[in-house]
C-alpha cells in the first residue's frame, strides 16, 4: 500500500497553482487535505502523474464573517471551522456538522474545499452546503466563476469543476435570526461515512409559524438531495411533531436510495424518514428558543 510515483509541486500562491494546473491538465491532481485522496493513492486506486499541493497557499485559508455571509477559503481545515466561535454564533449547523466528520485526526488535516470537491454524497459538507444554499467560487487562469450547489454537484464524486479550476472560496449566506438548524446521521460506527445523513433548517415568523424550512438528505442519491416537497407544505403552520411526521411520510415516494452491503434500499428510505423527522423537529425546537 504505497503510492505510485508522481511529480510533486507545491506552489506558494494561487496564480502559480493555476498555471501548473493548466500546464499538466488531466495528469495533475490538486492535493488539499488529502484525507480521501491519499488513501486512494496508497491503494493505487488513484495514480495521478502530478500532484499540485496547495497546502502552502495561505491566501486560501481564512474564515470571514460579515453581517450577511460567511466566507471560507477552500484550504481552511475542518477543525478551524469546527472551533470557530464566530461560525458557531451565526451558523451553529456548521459547528454541529463538522463534529460528525471522521475523527479529530481527519479534521486536523481535511479541508473544506477538499471535501466539497470530493463530492461524496454521504459526506457532511456537501449536504450542509446544499442545505445552506452556499455558493462556490472556482478560479481558473481565465478568471473566476461562482456556482450554486445545484450546479456544482453532478453525481457520485463528480462535480462541474473543470480540469483547470480550483475551488477557492465558499460563500454561505447567513439567514434571518430566528432560524434553527440540526444535522444528524445514521452510521453503524461513530465517525464512519453515513448510511443516511439529514440536515434541516427551520425559520420561524414572529407568530411562531414556520416562515421557511428546508431539508437536505445525503446517502440517498449521487448528490445531496434538497427535498422542497417535504418542507413547502409546512410553511405558515405551527411546527409540531405531527406536522413534521406527516410531511416526512412522503419521503418514501421521493427517494430511491441504492442498496449496499450495510443497508438495503428500503431500510435507507426508512432511515431517511426517521432522520428527516429528527432534524426538522430539532431545528424547529431550536428556532423556537431563539
Amino acid at each position: 500500500m504505497k503510492p505510485a510515483v508522481f511529480d510533486y509541486h507545491s506552489p506558494a500562491d494561487l496564480e502559480e497553482a493555476l498555471r501548473l494546473l493548466d500546464e499538466f491538465g488531466y495528469d495533475a491532481k490538486i492535493m488539499s487535505g488529502g484525507q480521501s485522496l491519499i488513501p486512494m493513492m496508497n491503494m493505487r486506486l488513484a495514480r495521478p502523474q502530478v500532484i499540485i499541493d496547495i497546502n502552502n497557499i495561505s491566501e486560501l485559508s481564512y474564515i470571514q464573517v460579515t453581517d450577511s455571509v460567511i466566507k471560507i477559503g477552500g484550504l481552511t481545515r475542518h477543525y478551524q471551522v469546527e472551533e470557530s466561535k464566530e461560525i458557531e454564533r451565526v451558523c451553529p449547523l456548521l459547528t454541529e456538522g463538522m463534529k460528525l466528520i471522521g475523527h479529530s485526526q481527519i479534521r486536523s488535516r481535511g479541508t473544506i474545499g477538499g471535501s466539497i470537491v470530493h463530492a461524496d454524497p454521504t459526506a457532511e459538507l456537501p449536504v450542509m452546503m446544499t442545505l445552506l444554499g452556499a455558493e462556490f467560487t472556482l478560479a481558473s487562469p481565465d478568471g473566476k466563476r461562482t456556482v450554486t450547489t445545484d450546479e456544482f454537484f453532478l453525481t457520485y464524486l463528480t462535480t462541474t469543476i473543470d480540469m483547470n479550476e480550483i475551488l477557492v472560496s465558499i460563500d454561505i449566506p447567513i439567514p434571518s435570526t430566528r432560524t434553527g438548524y440540526a444535522i444528524d446521521e445514521f452510521t453503524l460506527r461513530k465517525g464512519d461515512f453515513a448510511i443516511v445523513l439529514a440536515a434541516a433548517s427551520v425559520t420561524l415568523s414572529e407568530d411562531g409559524t414556520i416562515a421557511s424550512a428546508s431539508l437536505c438528505l445525503g446517502g440517498v442519491d449521487g448528490v445531496p438531495v434538497l427535498l422542497e416537497e417535504v418542507t413547502e407544505g409546512m410553511i405558515g403552520q405551527v411546527p409540531s411533531t405531527e406536522l413534521i411526521a406527516e410531511s416526512c411520510e412522503q419521503i418514501a415516494d421521493l427517494v430511491e436510495p441504492e442498496p449496499d452491503i450495510h443497508a438495503s434500499s428500503e431500510y435507507r428510505k426508512d432511515l431517511c424518514i426517521t432522520y428527516a423527522k429528527r432534524v426538522l423537529e430539532r431545528a424547529a425546537e431550536r428556532a423556537a428558543l431563539l
Binding site: G34, I38, P39, I51, D53
Partner: peptide, 16 residues
C-alpha cells in the same frame, strides 16, 4: 501531532 494537531501520518506525504 503536526504543528500541534493530531494527524494520521499515513495520510500525509513526507514532503508536506
Amino acid at each position: 501531532t503536526m504543528d500541534g494537531r493530531p494527524v494520521r501520518s499515513c495520510l500525509v506525504f513526507g514532503v508536506q
